[in-house]
Design a protein around this nucleic acid. Structure first.
Lengths: 206, 206
DNA sequence: GTCTATATTAGGATAGAC
DNA sequence: GTCTATCCTAATATAGAC
Protein backbone atom coordinates (compact mmCIF):
# COMPACT_ATOMS: atom_id res chain seq x y z
CA UNK A 1 0.00 0.00 0.00
CA UNK A 2 1.50 3.30 -1.00
CA UNK A 3 1.46 6.23 1.33
CA UNK A 4 -0.66 8.52 -0.80
CA UNK A 5 -3.48 6.08 -1.23
CA UNK A 6 -3.59 5.11 2.42
CA UNK A 7 -3.65 8.71 3.48
CA UNK A 8 -6.39 9.48 1.06
CA UNK A 9 -8.53 6.57 2.19
CA UNK A 10 -8.24 7.30 5.87
CA UNK A 11 -8.83 10.97 5.34
CA UNK A 12 -11.94 10.13 3.35
CA UNK A 13 -13.19 7.76 6.04
CA UNK A 14 -12.69 10.41 8.66
CA UNK A 15 -14.54 13.01 6.65
CA UNK A 16 -17.49 10.70 6.08
CA UNK A 17 -17.66 9.73 9.73
CA UNK A 18 -17.34 13.33 10.85
CA UNK A 19 -20.09 14.32 8.46
CA UNK A 20 -22.45 11.73 9.87
CA UNK A 21 -21.77 12.65 13.47
CA UNK A 22 -21.59 16.44 13.14
CA UNK A 23 -24.78 16.57 11.11
CA UNK A 24 -26.71 14.64 13.71
CA UNK A 25 -25.19 16.20 16.83
CA UNK A 26 -23.82 19.58 15.81
CA UNK A 27 -20.41 21.00 16.75
CA UNK A 28 -21.13 21.12 20.48
CA UNK A 29 -22.93 17.78 20.71
CA UNK A 30 -20.45 15.76 18.66
CA UNK A 31 -17.66 13.80 20.34
CA UNK A 32 -14.29 13.11 18.77
CA UNK A 33 -14.49 9.58 20.20
CA UNK A 34 -17.77 8.96 18.40
CA UNK A 35 -16.30 10.16 15.12
CA UNK A 36 -13.30 7.89 15.61
CA UNK A 37 -15.56 4.91 16.32
CA UNK A 38 -17.71 5.67 13.29
CA UNK A 39 -14.58 5.84 11.12
CA UNK A 40 -13.18 2.66 12.65
CA UNK A 41 -9.95 4.33 13.71
CA UNK A 42 -8.31 5.81 16.75
CA UNK A 43 -9.06 9.17 18.28
CA UNK A 44 -5.48 10.33 17.94
CA UNK A 45 -5.62 9.92 14.18
CA UNK A 46 -8.31 12.55 13.95
CA UNK A 47 -5.89 15.07 15.37
CA UNK A 48 -3.11 13.81 13.16
CA UNK A 49 -5.17 14.61 10.08
CA UNK A 50 -7.10 17.68 11.19
CA UNK A 51 -5.29 19.09 14.26
CA UNK A 52 -8.48 20.12 16.08
CA UNK A 53 -12.18 19.41 16.35
CA UNK A 54 -13.01 22.85 15.03
CA UNK A 55 -10.83 22.49 11.93
CA UNK A 56 -12.46 19.16 11.17
CA UNK A 57 -15.86 20.68 11.70
CA UNK A 58 -15.11 23.53 9.31
CA UNK A 59 -14.41 21.09 6.49
CA UNK A 60 -17.76 19.39 7.02
CA UNK A 61 -19.74 22.58 7.39
CA UNK A 62 -18.23 24.25 4.37
CA UNK A 63 -18.91 21.24 2.15
CA UNK A 64 -22.46 20.84 3.39
CA UNK A 65 -23.23 24.46 2.61
CA UNK A 66 -21.46 24.28 -0.77
CA UNK A 67 -23.47 21.20 -1.79
CA UNK A 68 -26.78 22.89 -1.01
CA UNK A 69 -25.82 26.10 -2.77
CA UNK A 70 -24.63 24.08 -5.76
CA UNK A 71 -27.98 22.30 -6.13
CA UNK A 72 -29.85 25.56 -5.90
CA UNK A 73 -27.59 27.27 -8.41
CA UNK A 74 -28.01 24.42 -10.90
CA UNK A 75 -31.72 25.15 -11.12
CA UNK A 76 -31.21 28.80 -11.92
CA UNK A 77 -31.15 29.80 -15.59
CA UNK A 78 -31.31 33.50 -16.09
CA UNK A 79 -33.46 33.22 -19.19
CA UNK A 80 -36.41 30.93 -18.84
CA UNK A 81 -39.89 30.18 -17.71
CA UNK A 82 -40.50 30.62 -13.99
CA UNK A 83 -42.77 27.57 -13.85
CA UNK A 84 -40.09 25.40 -15.37
CA UNK A 85 -37.68 26.79 -12.84
CA UNK A 86 -40.04 25.98 -9.99
CA UNK A 87 -40.57 22.41 -11.16
CA UNK A 88 -36.91 21.63 -11.54
CA UNK A 89 -35.97 23.46 -8.37
CA UNK A 90 -38.55 21.70 -6.21
CA UNK A 91 -37.70 18.38 -7.79
CA UNK A 92 -33.95 18.68 -7.28
CA UNK A 93 -34.16 20.22 -3.85
CA UNK A 94 -36.63 17.69 -2.44
CA UNK A 95 -34.53 14.88 -3.87
CA UNK A 96 -31.41 15.89 -1.99
CA UNK A 97 -33.45 16.65 1.11
CA UNK A 98 -34.82 13.13 1.04
CA UNK A 99 -31.27 11.79 0.86
CA UNK A 100 -29.93 14.25 3.48
CA UNK A 101 -32.85 15.05 5.78
CA UNK A 102 -30.73 16.44 8.62
CA UNK A 103 -28.55 18.84 6.70
CA UNK A 104 -30.84 21.89 6.80
CA UNK A 105 -31.26 21.71 10.54
CA UNK A 106 -27.51 21.28 10.90
CA UNK A 107 -26.77 24.35 8.81
CA UNK A 108 -29.41 26.55 10.42
CA UNK A 109 -28.34 25.60 13.87
CA UNK A 110 -24.69 26.37 13.27
CA UNK A 111 -25.31 29.70 11.56
CA UNK A 112 -27.54 30.73 14.45
CA UNK A 113 -25.16 29.72 17.21
CA UNK A 114 -22.07 30.98 15.35
CA UNK A 115 -23.18 33.66 12.90
CA UNK A 116 -19.60 34.84 12.47
CA UNK A 117 -18.90 31.62 10.59
CA UNK A 118 -20.99 32.72 7.63
CA UNK A 119 -18.76 35.55 6.48
CA UNK A 120 -15.93 33.06 6.33
CA UNK A 121 -17.67 30.91 3.75
CA UNK A 122 -19.77 33.40 1.87
CA UNK A 123 -16.64 34.56 0.10
CA UNK A 124 -16.03 31.08 -1.31
CA UNK A 125 -19.58 29.87 -1.94
CA UNK A 126 -22.18 32.09 -3.50
CA UNK A 127 -25.86 31.64 -4.29
CA UNK A 128 -26.69 32.95 -7.74
CA UNK A 129 -29.27 35.40 -6.48
CA UNK A 130 -28.72 38.00 -9.22
CA UNK A 131 -29.55 35.34 -11.81
CA UNK A 132 -32.70 34.38 -9.98
CA UNK A 133 -33.77 38.00 -9.71
CA UNK A 134 -33.26 38.60 -13.42
CA UNK A 135 -35.26 35.49 -14.29
CA UNK A 136 -38.12 36.51 -12.02
CA UNK A 137 -38.22 40.09 -13.27
CA UNK A 138 -38.29 38.92 -16.86
CA UNK A 139 -41.25 36.66 -16.18
CA UNK A 140 -43.04 39.50 -14.42
CA UNK A 141 -42.33 41.85 -17.33
CA UNK A 142 -43.70 39.25 -19.74
CA UNK A 143 -46.87 38.97 -17.64
CA UNK A 144 -46.24 35.29 -17.07
CA UNK A 145 -46.57 35.77 -13.34
CA UNK A 146 -47.93 38.36 -10.96
CA UNK A 147 -45.63 41.03 -9.66
CA UNK A 148 -43.77 40.42 -6.40
CA UNK A 149 -40.32 41.01 -4.92
CA UNK A 150 -38.11 38.13 -6.06
CA UNK A 151 -36.66 37.79 -2.57
CA UNK A 152 -40.02 36.69 -1.25
CA UNK A 153 -40.43 34.09 -3.96
CA UNK A 154 -37.14 32.36 -3.29
CA UNK A 155 -37.80 32.38 0.45
CA UNK A 156 -41.27 30.96 -0.15
CA UNK A 157 -39.83 28.15 -2.23
CA UNK A 158 -37.05 27.31 0.20
CA UNK A 159 -39.40 27.45 3.18
CA UNK A 160 -42.05 25.25 1.63
CA UNK A 161 -39.51 22.60 0.70
CA UNK A 162 -37.29 22.63 3.72
CA UNK A 163 -39.63 23.27 6.62
CA UNK A 164 -41.09 19.75 6.82
CA UNK A 165 -37.60 18.34 7.14
CA UNK A 166 -36.49 20.77 9.80
CA UNK A 167 -39.64 20.10 11.82
CA UNK A 168 -39.88 16.41 10.94
CA UNK A 169 -39.80 14.83 14.41
CA UNK A 170 -42.46 17.26 15.57
CA UNK A 171 -44.66 16.60 12.54
CA UNK A 172 -44.36 12.88 12.98
CA UNK A 173 -45.54 13.20 16.54
CA UNK A 174 -48.30 15.71 15.89
CA UNK A 175 -49.78 14.31 12.68
CA UNK A 176 -48.67 10.75 12.27
CA UNK A 177 -48.34 9.25 15.71
CA UNK A 178 -50.67 6.33 15.03
CA UNK A 179 -49.71 5.72 11.38
CA UNK A 180 -45.94 6.08 11.02
CA UNK A 181 -45.99 5.52 7.24
CA UNK A 182 -48.04 8.70 7.01
CA UNK A 183 -45.04 11.00 7.28
CA UNK A 184 -43.23 9.46 4.32
CA UNK A 185 -46.42 9.47 2.32
CA UNK A 186 -46.92 13.12 3.20
CA UNK A 187 -43.43 14.06 2.05
CA UNK A 188 -43.97 12.11 -1.16
CA UNK A 189 -47.22 13.95 -1.99
CA UNK A 190 -45.65 17.24 -1.08
CA UNK A 191 -43.71 17.74 -4.28
CA UNK A 192 -46.86 17.90 -6.38
CA UNK A 193 -48.59 20.01 -3.78
CA UNK A 194 -45.86 22.63 -3.78
CA UNK A 195 -45.66 22.85 -7.56
CA UNK A 196 -49.43 23.16 -7.85
CA UNK A 197 -49.53 25.69 -5.04
CA UNK A 198 -46.99 28.02 -6.65
CA UNK A 199 -48.55 27.81 -10.09
CA UNK A 200 -51.87 28.77 -8.61
CA UNK A 201 -50.44 31.60 -6.55
CA UNK A 202 -48.29 33.08 -9.29
CA UNK A 203 -50.59 32.90 -12.30
CA UNK A 204 -51.72 36.29 -13.55
CA UNK A 205 -55.40 37.00 -12.95
CA UNK A 206 -57.47 36.29 -16.01
CA UNK B 1 -37.23 39.64 53.26
CA UNK B 2 -39.36 36.57 53.72
CA UNK B 3 -38.22 33.22 52.46
CA UNK B 4 -40.96 32.64 49.94
CA UNK B 5 -40.51 35.88 48.09
CA UNK B 6 -36.74 35.57 47.87
CA UNK B 7 -36.98 32.06 46.56
CA UNK B 8 -39.48 33.10 43.99
CA UNK B 9 -37.41 36.01 42.75
CA UNK B 10 -34.20 34.04 42.39
CA UNK B 11 -35.97 31.16 40.73
CA UNK B 12 -37.50 33.58 38.27
CA UNK B 13 -34.17 35.21 37.55
CA UNK B 14 -32.61 31.82 36.94
CA UNK B 15 -35.36 30.79 34.58
CA UNK B 16 -35.05 33.98 32.57
CA UNK B 17 -31.28 33.70 32.35
CA UNK B 18 -31.49 30.03 31.43
CA UNK B 19 -34.02 30.82 28.74
CA UNK B 20 -31.76 33.43 27.20
CA UNK B 21 -28.71 31.22 27.20
CA UNK B 22 -30.32 27.91 26.22
CA UNK B 23 -32.22 29.48 23.35
CA UNK B 24 -29.08 30.97 21.87
CA UNK B 25 -26.69 28.08 22.53
CA UNK B 26 -28.83 24.97 22.88
CA UNK B 27 -28.48 22.29 25.55
CA UNK B 28 -25.00 21.21 24.49
CA UNK B 29 -23.62 24.67 23.83
CA UNK B 30 -24.92 26.33 26.99
CA UNK B 31 -22.70 26.59 30.08
CA UNK B 32 -24.00 26.62 33.63
CA UNK B 33 -21.45 29.33 34.39
CA UNK B 34 -22.87 31.54 31.67
CA UNK B 35 -26.40 31.08 32.99
CA UNK B 36 -25.21 31.96 36.49
CA UNK B 37 -23.47 35.10 35.22
CA UNK B 38 -26.53 36.12 33.24
CA UNK B 39 -28.68 35.66 36.35
CA UNK B 40 -26.17 37.52 38.53
CA UNK B 41 -25.80 34.62 40.95
CA UNK B 42 -23.50 31.77 41.73
CA UNK B 43 -23.22 28.51 39.81
CA UNK B 44 -24.01 26.46 42.89
CA UNK B 45 -27.38 28.14 43.23
CA UNK B 46 -28.44 26.75 39.89
CA UNK B 47 -28.01 23.27 41.26
CA UNK B 48 -29.70 24.21 44.50
CA UNK B 49 -32.84 25.19 42.58
CA UNK B 50 -32.81 22.73 39.70
CA UNK B 51 -30.47 19.88 40.67
CA UNK B 52 -29.04 19.42 37.16
CA UNK B 53 -28.48 21.16 33.86
CA UNK B 54 -30.86 18.81 32.12
CA UNK B 55 -33.70 19.43 34.59
CA UNK B 56 -33.27 23.17 34.17
CA UNK B 57 -33.22 22.74 30.43
CA UNK B 58 -36.42 20.74 30.47
CA UNK B 59 -38.28 23.60 32.15
CA UNK B 60 -37.15 26.01 29.47
CA UNK B 61 -37.81 23.71 26.58
CA UNK B 62 -41.24 22.70 27.77
CA UNK B 63 -42.33 26.29 28.27
CA UNK B 64 -40.97 27.41 24.92
CA UNK B 65 -42.90 24.68 23.15
CA UNK B 66 -46.04 25.35 25.17
CA UNK B 67 -45.94 29.06 24.33
CA UNK B 68 -45.72 28.40 20.61
CA UNK B 69 -48.45 25.78 20.66
CA UNK B 70 -50.63 28.12 22.67
CA UNK B 71 -50.33 30.93 20.11
CA UNK B 72 -51.14 28.56 17.29
CA UNK B 73 -54.12 27.10 19.12
CA UNK B 74 -55.52 30.55 19.86
CA UNK B 75 -55.89 31.19 16.14
CA UNK B 76 -57.88 28.01 15.55
CA UNK B 77 -61.65 28.26 15.63
CA UNK B 78 -63.35 25.19 14.35
CA UNK B 79 -66.15 27.14 12.71
CA UNK B 80 -65.02 30.03 10.61
CA UNK B 81 -63.62 31.46 7.44
CA UNK B 82 -60.25 30.09 6.39
CA UNK B 83 -59.10 33.51 5.20
CA UNK B 84 -59.86 35.05 8.56
CA UNK B 85 -57.96 32.22 10.16
CA UNK B 86 -54.96 32.82 7.92
CA UNK B 87 -54.88 36.54 8.65
CA UNK B 88 -55.04 36.16 12.42
CA UNK B 89 -52.69 33.22 12.41
CA UNK B 90 -50.02 34.95 10.33
CA UNK B 91 -50.42 38.12 12.33
CA UNK B 92 -50.10 36.45 15.74
CA UNK B 93 -47.39 34.08 14.74
CA UNK B 94 -45.17 36.69 13.08
CA UNK B 95 -45.62 38.95 16.08
CA UNK B 96 -44.22 36.44 18.53
CA UNK B 97 -41.52 35.44 16.08
CA UNK B 98 -40.40 39.04 15.90
CA UNK B 99 -40.18 39.11 19.69
CA UNK B 100 -38.55 35.67 19.93
CA UNK B 101 -36.60 35.18 16.73
CA UNK B 102 -34.40 32.35 18.01
CA UNK B 103 -37.06 30.10 19.50
CA UNK B 104 -37.94 28.13 16.37
CA UNK B 105 -34.36 27.21 15.68
CA UNK B 106 -33.93 26.25 19.32
CA UNK B 107 -36.94 23.94 19.23
CA UNK B 108 -36.11 22.35 15.90
CA UNK B 109 -32.56 21.73 16.88
CA UNK B 110 -33.44 20.05 20.15
CA UNK B 111 -36.13 17.83 18.68
CA UNK B 112 -33.73 16.73 15.98
CA UNK B 113 -30.85 15.95 18.29
CA UNK B 114 -33.07 14.41 20.99
CA UNK B 115 -36.26 13.18 19.30
CA UNK B 116 -37.11 11.10 22.35
CA UNK B 117 -37.84 14.30 24.21
CA UNK B 118 -40.95 14.96 22.17
CA UNK B 119 -43.00 12.08 23.50
CA UNK B 120 -42.38 13.43 26.97
CA UNK B 121 -44.05 16.74 26.23
CA UNK B 122 -46.60 15.82 23.63
CA UNK B 123 -48.71 14.33 26.39
CA UNK B 124 -48.92 17.66 28.20
CA UNK B 125 -49.05 20.09 25.28
CA UNK B 126 -51.17 19.48 22.24
CA UNK B 127 -51.70 21.33 19.00
CA UNK B 128 -55.38 21.52 18.11
CA UNK B 129 -54.95 19.78 14.78
CA UNK B 130 -58.40 18.16 14.74
CA UNK B 131 -59.94 21.60 15.05
CA UNK B 132 -57.84 22.91 12.20
CA UNK B 133 -58.77 19.96 10.01
CA UNK B 134 -62.50 20.44 10.64
CA UNK B 135 -62.24 24.15 9.83
CA UNK B 136 -60.38 23.43 6.60
CA UNK B 137 -62.76 20.69 5.50
CA UNK B 138 -65.76 22.89 6.13
CA UNK B 139 -64.31 25.66 3.99
CA UNK B 140 -63.56 23.16 1.24
CA UNK B 141 -67.10 21.75 1.42
CA UNK B 142 -68.50 25.28 1.18
CA UNK B 143 -66.35 25.89 -1.92
CA UNK B 144 -64.63 28.80 -0.23
CA UNK B 145 -61.25 27.30 -1.03
CA UNK B 146 -59.81 24.69 -3.35
CA UNK B 147 -59.53 21.14 -2.13
CA UNK B 148 -56.29 20.04 -0.49
CA UNK B 149 -55.15 17.92 2.44
CA UNK B 150 -55.30 20.13 5.56
CA UNK B 151 -51.92 18.84 6.71
CA UNK B 152 -50.26 20.51 3.75
CA UNK B 153 -51.96 23.81 4.42
CA UNK B 154 -50.81 24.07 8.03
CA UNK B 155 -47.26 23.08 7.06
CA UNK B 156 -47.32 25.67 4.27
CA UNK B 157 -48.36 28.35 6.73
CA UNK B 158 -45.85 27.42 9.38
CA UNK B 159 -43.04 27.12 6.86
CA UNK B 160 -43.73 30.44 5.17
CA UNK B 161 -43.78 32.27 8.50
CA UNK B 162 -40.98 30.54 10.32
CA UNK B 163 -38.40 29.83 7.64
CA UNK B 164 -37.01 33.38 7.35
CA UNK B 165 -36.33 33.38 11.08
CA UNK B 166 -34.64 30.00 11.10
CA UNK B 167 -32.46 31.01 8.17
CA UNK B 168 -32.07 34.63 9.18
CA UNK B 169 -28.28 34.93 9.45
CA UNK B 170 -27.93 33.29 6.06
CA UNK B 171 -30.52 35.56 4.46
CA UNK B 172 -28.90 38.63 5.87
CA UNK B 173 -25.63 37.62 4.33
CA UNK B 174 -27.02 36.49 0.99
CA UNK B 175 -29.56 39.24 0.34
CA UNK B 176 -28.80 42.17 2.55
CA UNK B 177 -25.05 42.30 3.02
CA UNK B 178 -24.70 45.89 1.83
CA UNK B 179 -27.94 47.28 3.26
CA UNK B 180 -28.48 45.79 6.73
CA UNK B 181 -31.84 47.48 7.23
CA UNK B 182 -33.08 45.44 4.29
CA UNK B 183 -33.65 42.33 6.36
CA UNK B 184 -35.98 44.03 8.83
CA UNK B 185 -37.82 45.70 5.99
CA UNK B 186 -38.17 42.34 4.29
CA UNK B 187 -39.62 40.72 7.39
CA UNK B 188 -42.01 43.64 7.78
CA UNK B 189 -43.33 43.33 4.22
CA UNK B 190 -43.57 39.62 4.57
CA UNK B 191 -46.81 39.56 6.54
CA UNK B 192 -48.79 41.10 3.70
CA UNK B 193 -47.00 38.98 1.16
CA UNK B 194 -47.90 35.74 2.93
CA UNK B 195 -51.54 36.68 3.39
CA UNK B 196 -51.86 37.72 -0.24
CA UNK B 197 -50.04 34.62 -1.40
CA UNK B 198 -52.36 32.23 0.42
CA UNK B 199 -55.51 34.01 -0.67
CA UNK B 200 -54.38 33.79 -4.26
CA UNK B 201 -53.38 30.13 -3.98
CA UNK B 202 -56.50 28.97 -2.17
CA UNK B 203 -59.23 30.86 -4.01
CA UNK B 204 -61.54 28.60 -6.02
CA UNK B 205 -61.14 29.00 -9.77
CA UNK B 206 -63.75 31.25 -11.26
C1' DG C 1 0.44 6.47 9.45
C1' DT C 2 -1.46 4.30 13.34
C1' DC C 3 -1.68 2.96 17.86
C1' DT C 4 -1.57 3.23 23.45
C1' DA C 5 -0.97 5.95 27.12
C1' DT C 6 -1.17 10.30 29.23
C1' DA C 7 -1.50 15.25 29.87
C1' DT C 8 -4.67 19.11 30.41
C1' DT C 9 -8.59 21.60 30.82
C1' DA C 10 -13.32 22.41 31.00
C1' DG C 11 -17.53 21.94 33.09
C1' DG C 12 -21.22 19.73 35.82
C1' DA C 13 -21.97 18.71 40.41
C1' DT C 14 -21.35 18.62 45.62
C1' DA C 15 -19.62 19.88 50.55
C1' DG C 16 -19.70 22.87 53.91
C1' DA C 17 -19.31 27.63 55.91
C1' DC C 18 -22.18 31.50 56.68
C1' DG D 1 -30.76 30.74 50.55
C1' DT D 2 -26.33 31.98 49.01
C1' DC D 3 -21.55 31.80 48.77
C1' DT D 4 -16.43 29.73 48.20
C1' DA D 5 -13.87 25.97 47.53
C1' DT D 6 -13.42 21.56 45.71
C1' DC D 7 -14.43 17.22 43.52
C1' DC D 8 -14.78 14.31 39.55
C1' DT D 9 -15.61 12.92 35.15
C1' DA D 10 -15.62 13.61 30.37
C1' DA D 11 -13.45 15.28 26.40
C1' DT D 12 -9.87 17.61 23.62
C1' DA D 13 -5.38 17.25 22.69
C1' DT D 14 -0.45 15.57 22.67
C1' DA D 15 3.78 12.35 23.40
C1' DG D 16 5.98 8.71 22.05
C1' DA D 17 6.35 3.70 20.73
C1' DC D 18 5.85 0.92 16.69
Amino acid sequence: MDKGKTKHNTEQQILEAARTVFIRKGLDGARMQEIADEAGINKALLHYYFRSKEKLFNHIFENALADIFEIINQSIHEEGDVYVFIETFVDHYLTILKKNPFIPNFIFNEINSHPERIGLFSRKIKLNIPGFIRMTEQNIAQKKMISMPPEHLIIDLLGMCVFPYVAKPLLEDVFFRDHPAGADNFLYERKQHIIYFFKKALQPKQ
